[in-house]
């Protein structure tokens, strides 16, 4: 499947698989923000973008041309329902992760009075 698309050339690939390209753009942006931004909150935002990229990847994979959303009253064919279910679970996990992360950041701010990772490093080595 993928191999066939790869064989068709890069332009073709971009046109037919634009969702996947979008996915990997999000992954890249998320990873970049996590690594490059010194601000802890922005790191968490980067982490969210990264995860969103993966969610999108699953949803895109479930898509079937011309299909309906998988609600039984509508006529088929349906898009695959399973990835939607999985990603709902994953979103819940992601939300709780974000909550824990923000809670930790609040504690760090109360303790050290900064949200910048580099300042934090200096403050902690001074201890």
């Amino acid at each position: 499947m993928i191999d066939a698309a790869l064989a068709a050339g890069p332009v073709e690939l971009l046109a037919t698989r634009s969702y996947y390209v979008g996915t990997f753009l999000l992954l890249g942006i998320g990873a970049y923000v996590m690594i490059a931004s010194p601000n802890l909150v922005k790191k968490v935002i980067g982490m969210n973008i990264f995860q969103t990229g993966i969610f999108l990847f699953f949803i895109a994979a479930a898509y079937v041309d011309g299909a309906q959303s998988p609600v039984l009253e509508q006529a088929g064919p349906y898009v695959s329902p399973l990835p939607h279910v999985l990603i709902l679970t994953a979103i819940v996990v992601g939300v709780s992760l974000t909550a824990v992360a923000l809670g930790l950041i609040v504690r760090i701010y109360n303790e050290y009075g900064t949200l910048e990772a580099d300042v934090l490093q200096e403050v902690r080595t001074d201890d």
């Binding site: 996590m34 802890l40 968490v44 982490m47 995860q51 992360a101 760090i108």
Partner: peptide
């Protein structure tokens, strides 16, 4: 209950989530 453990946990969280 210390700043150190909070920072360690946050780092763990971000890397672990990736």
């Amino acid at each position: 209950d210390t700043g150190r453990s909070a920072v360690a946990a946050l780092k763990y969280l971000i890397v672990g989530t990736v």
